[in-house]
């Protein structure tokens, strides 16, 4: 699955004396995953033997889908989520590749996604919104 660095939300990692400062930016201000993400970061770092960790929230510059890595976009598509496009809508159906698609709702299962549908294979799919 997609990693936090793929998502582009880890803005900085730096040592301050013996404390590791990880700077994280939220995708959406109300994203319910934020606390889980922070917990995951701490757990992962502790698993690597790092004991003193400080998580810093940085709002500006605000997160943009431009920070998604190419690898991250590929992983999204492989998972059935159409990656963000500069044009503002998905390029094609992530299931069958058809370009014949339509928007169902500007929002999807999470704030970062919108709901679309393929008119060929008739499958609905999530589109990762471009912000």
């Amino acid at each position: 699955m997609i990693s936090l660095t793929d998502l582009g939300i880890i803005r900085d990692v730096a040592w301050q004396d013996d404390t590791l400062i990880v700077t994280v930016t939220p995708t959406y201000s109300g994203c319910p995953a934020t606390s889980i993400i922070n917990l995951d970061i701490e757990t992962a770092l502790r698993g690597h033997g790092i004991e003193k960790i400080e998580l810093k929230r940085q709002l500006s510059p605000a997160w943009t889908t431009d920070w998604l890595t190419e690898g991250g976009k590929r992983k999204l598509e492989a998972f059935g989520i159409a990656p963000p496009q500069p044009a503002g809508g998905p390029d094609h159906c992530p299931h069958c590749g058809s370009k014949s698609i339509e928007k169902i709702s500007q929002f999807g299962s999470t704030p970062c996604k919108a709901t679309w549908r393929c008119k060929d294979c008739l499958e609905p799919f999530d589109y990762f919104k471009c912000i």
């Binding site: 959406y28 201000s29 109300g30 994203c31 169902i104 500007q106 299962s109 999470t110 709901t115």
Partner: peptide, 20 residues
């Protein structure tokens, strides 16, 4: 359903902004 999801997401954004 789609409107339900859209409204819930809008509410979530607003509550997130409230926290800030």
């Amino acid at each position: 359903l789609e409107e339900d999801i859209a409204l819930a997401n809008t509410a979530l954004d607003l509550i997130g902004q409230t926290q800030l």
